[in-house]
Design a binder for these strands. Structure first.
Lengths: 335, 335
DNA sequence: CGCAGAAATGCAAGGGCTTGCATGCCGAGA
DNA sequence: TCTCGGCATGCAAGCCCTTGCATTTCTGCG
């Protein structure tokens, strides 16, 4: 920097000002500095900058996992938005590390803030996160504290839409929900709305009608075993808590020669690529996955500038995408 | 830090030494410092540290995209390995940014090194990368320079294996290769070995037998259109340049009621999750995707410690995984 | 032509840490 | 008892910037 200053015939202060508030330096001087910088290939030292300003353009993102359609899409949305706003992402996932290697390491010192998503409620991890003292935004989970910014997905709207859609051709007593892990935030919300919507249609779902497992194809196949036995003269309706599960159910049904959608009407959740890859294509509730990541980042960055606004709650809409597995709307013959 | 020093009754120099070379401080003193640190919740300031040492435990990873099975798996492998070695990953993708926002931004100042993968040969980007002056490792691409560390996948072994496997039940003149983008490194390598292996079997493939397109399901479907017309009394063999393409081909075949594997024998590439999801399950060449990421990170970190060793070339093996689409080995009836 | 106020720039003090060198202490060998 | 090497520790410089304050230069107006 000193060299640049010298080359431009100014002091380092002016160079610094040129970099940080160009309007505070005379145009003519600015040009000289500009040129000197270019010619010398000068790059300010981020460490020194950070040391002075206590700021950085790096934000951390902590996810349960990096892998899989959902997280990678989330990450993509987050990365794109961060980049757009001049920030960069430092990633960390729960799995593979002990819960939070990132948090206990010094890198958190680089971060201006942290976007967090953890699937399982994990008090210890959560304590660590809070202890970091970093500005936080929480993605799609139950945690709830004063002044905490959160970004959620409106599970209710999509679930309700899906259930009602199914109810158009399936009796309430023939409806099933195949969930992910019991206790998981999304599964819990979706199950609740499922039950509530069925109840609204005049039927109280039995425990049989709401099942919990995992977010996997395997669980879908397994759950399908029980379900397929219920298929009789009347078609059954199944809402899966994600597309993976739905895919497992579809495969199992096809292997058992149970026609989908004629005898089993299926709706998934998330609208991952898998949904349009399978045949028939999966009706599913679209999650604004990339938006979720993007929003989280946006809120976080906004919070860095405006700490006093903390406590925001953003809810992103979901909506049903009707495709082949829930019955061609034109062919539906009522219940 | 000063507070810690005071609390422990030592100088800041001792605290620093305790942190960086614990063996240079008396055990008894160490304990006091340790306690003081814990009680005060002291965390060294990374900026100040970086300013002094010119080091950081952050490495950048630049990928063509974050999305999709392949990249997210690569990223996962890289992140896990980085974490294991006490490093953290700063991500950036070509798509969504202008080519290299990351490179032109100051964050590169945080990074100790950079792992790079770019699909399309892109001279301008590559210049920028080199200009960063960062230690580099190149993942799976053609770029080739003196003293550059590279991590590659041994396309040849897997391709050869796959082609020979298909040749066991398909005549060389009935073999087809459906590639990704012409010019893409992997596609080029695989196509070359495909041609070579067929040639070795005594037949020179026509241009018809080697086609280029994209790494997408859609391209697979489209390519299948032409292919399916070739299916006659004898089965044809198809090697797709990735599983996506293979999936498209399989779907198109099924829709056209061309039995797979009886009349079309199909092998994909990458062994993504998609491969075992489809029915019949896809025979495919397994890529050590996560390993690729992990290795890149390992080499890079090794290089930080041992710059003089630069110029390494690591080749990770691929191998054929035989599943349903290439004919049940037990059922194969020769050509 | 002189002066006040604004604009442009320079000066220098840190920001929190690491590390070469100096100091003080100890035990061991003479 | 004296000297000397080695260990543990302290001192203070310096890493490269930013920024409040001081200084200089310029502008416009009386």
């Amino acid at each position: 920097m000193e060299d640049v200053a010298q080359a431009a015939g100014v002091s380092t202060a002016t160079v610094s000002r040129f970099l940080n508030s160009p309007n505070r330096v005379a145009k003519e001087t600015a040009d000289r500095v500009q040129r000197a910088i270019r010619e010398l290939g000068y790059r300010p030292n981020v460490f020194a900058q950070g040391l002075m300003t206590r700021k950085s353009h790096v934000i951390g993102i902590l996810l349960p996992d990096i892998h899989g359609e959902f997280y990678s899409e989330l990450l993509r949305g987050a990365a794109a938005e961060a980049r757009r706003l001049g920030y960069h992402l430092l990633i960390s996932s729960e799995s593979g590390d002990g819960p939070a290697t990132m948090l206990s390491s010094n890198v958190i010192g680089f971060m201006a803030g942290l976007a967090v998503m953890v699937t399982e409620p994990n008090e210890e991890l959560w304590q660590q996160i809070k202890a970091s003292g970093l500005p936080l935004v929480v993605i799609d989970e139950a945690i709830h504290a004063n002044g905490l910014d959160r970004v959620l997905v409106d599970n209710a709207s999509g679930t309700r839409e899906a259930v009602n859609h199914l109810l158009a051709s399936v009796r309430p007593e023939d409806m099933y929900f195949v969930g992910g892990p019991k206790g998981n935030f999304d599964t819990t919300e979706r199950a609740a709305v499922f039950v509530q919507t069925i109840a609204h249609a005049g039927w109280t779902p039995s425990d049989e009608q709401v099942r919990y497992g995992e977010y996997t194809v395997e669980w879908g196949r397994k759950a399908a075993g029980a379900l397929l036995q219920r298929v009789a003269s009347r078609p059954i309706g199944v809402l899966a808590a994600n597309d993976e599960i739905a895919f497992g159910i579809l495969q199992a049904a096809q292997e058992a020669h149970v026609d989908v959608p004629a005898r089993l009407r299926l709706v998934g959740f998330d609208d991952t690529r898998l949904a349009s890859l399978m045949r028939p294509q999966l009706s599913t509730v679209r999650m604004p996955t990339a938006d979720l990541g993007a929003h989280a980042v946006r809120v976080l960055i906004d919070r860095l500038a405006q700490p006093q606004r903390a406590g925001t709650l953003t809810t992103l809409p979901t909506r049903l995408v009707v495709r082949g597995t829930s019955g061609d709307p034109g062919t539906e013959s009522g219940s």
